[in-house]
Computed example of a mutant assay.
Amino acid sequence: MVAGNWKMNTTPAEGAALAQAVIEHVGTPGTKVVFGVPAIQLTQIQALTSKAPGFYVAAQNMHQEDSGAYTGEISARMLAAAGVDYVILGHSERRDYFGEDDTLIHAKILKALAAGVQPIYCCGEKLNIRQAGNHEMVVGKQIEQALFTLEAEQMRQVVIAYEPVWAIGTGVTASPEQAQDMHAFIRRMIHNYFGQDVAESTTILYGGSVKPDNAEELFGMPDVDGGLVGGASLDAAGFAAIVKAL
């Protein structure tokens, strides 16, 4: 899978043009291609992807309740009713700017799964944690808190995105070896808790400054199953090149 996280970018007209251009550049993809778009664009991008095999749409967030007095929020049931395929949960920007922790994210994951929307669960460490050598401990705790009460069949519906926070939007990328080491660690955790079949079938994406010039090397690592792409997903030709690298 290659998923593009547009974040708070593009107007509806710009988003429609961007998605259409990516679809035309890629043609029939050899992997799943996901557009993570602003909420105001979900239905229009869903309409485009529904006619383009291999392309899907993701929300960038959702609320943990089904309904209620939560002004400005969107529920998993609403996303499902709109035909949304995926939802990005636990992104580092949601954690940093909005104080989300894995207890809350876990509740969102359960609601998404119950509604039939597949979570793309983000985890990762900050630079000081990496420098202290505590990255496996921190990422392991995130995964344990967010995912380890799920049943095996629920876990099969979850995509994991490892995003070293120190490599998001900085232009710094984890080396292919660093990415592989963390992806292998995550897969071992899934194996130890859910078993080999679930671990082997779990898609684990790398999400830290993926670009056309480093995508092929990153995606060539045995436990890297694709990417969660930020800024580079806003350029149709560049994002298409990343897709084709997988």
Rank of each mutant, 00 (worst) to 15 (best):
D181Q: 15
N128A: 13
G226F: 04
V87K: 00
A16H: 10
Q145C: 09
K111Y: 03
E93C: 09
S175Q: 09
L110F: 00
N9Y: 11
T71A: 08
V229C: 11
G68C: 09
V138T: 05
P176Q: 05
V159I: 15
A146T: 04
T71P: 05
V117P: 07
Y97T: 08
D102G: 05
P53Q: 08
N192K: 00
L228S: 10
I129P: 05
A161D: 09
D197A: 14
E217Y: 04
A146I: 00
G15P: 12
L147F: 03
V26T: 04
L147H: 03
F194D: 00
A39Y: 09
Q60A: 08
I105Y: 10
Q142Y: 06
G207V: 02
L246F: 06
N214A: 02
K108L: 05
A17N: 07
A215C: 02
T11C: 12
G140E: 03
K244T: 03
P119W: 07
D197W: 00
Q60N: 07
M1T: 15
A237E: 15
I120L: 09
Y70L: 06
I109E: 05
G124P: 12
I143Y: 00
A59D: 13
I143R: 02
M182F: 06
E136F: 03
G226C: 06
I143N: 03
A52N: 15
K126S: 14
N9P: 00
G116P: 02
I88T: 10
F148R: 04
D213G: 02
M8A: 15
E200I: 05
R187W: 07
F194Y: 14
A115T: 03
L113W: 11
L127G: 10
L127M: 14
E100L: 10
V34C: 07
A81Y: 06
Y56Q: 10
N134R: 15
A3D: 04
G54M: 13
P176K: 06
I109A: 03
T11K: 12
A69N: 12
S175L: 09
A146P: 01
V87P: 07
V172G: 05
K211G: 02
G220E: 01
A114H: 04
F148K: 05
F55G: 12
G171E: 11
A174N: 10
E217N: 06
Y86E: 10
S209P: 09
V2H: 11
A82D: 15
A13S: 14
G220N: 03
H91V: 06
P212K: 07
A132G: 14
E177H: 01
L113Y: 00
Q46E: 15
G72S: 10
A47I: 12
V33P: 05
S92D: 11
V139Q: 04
K211C: 04
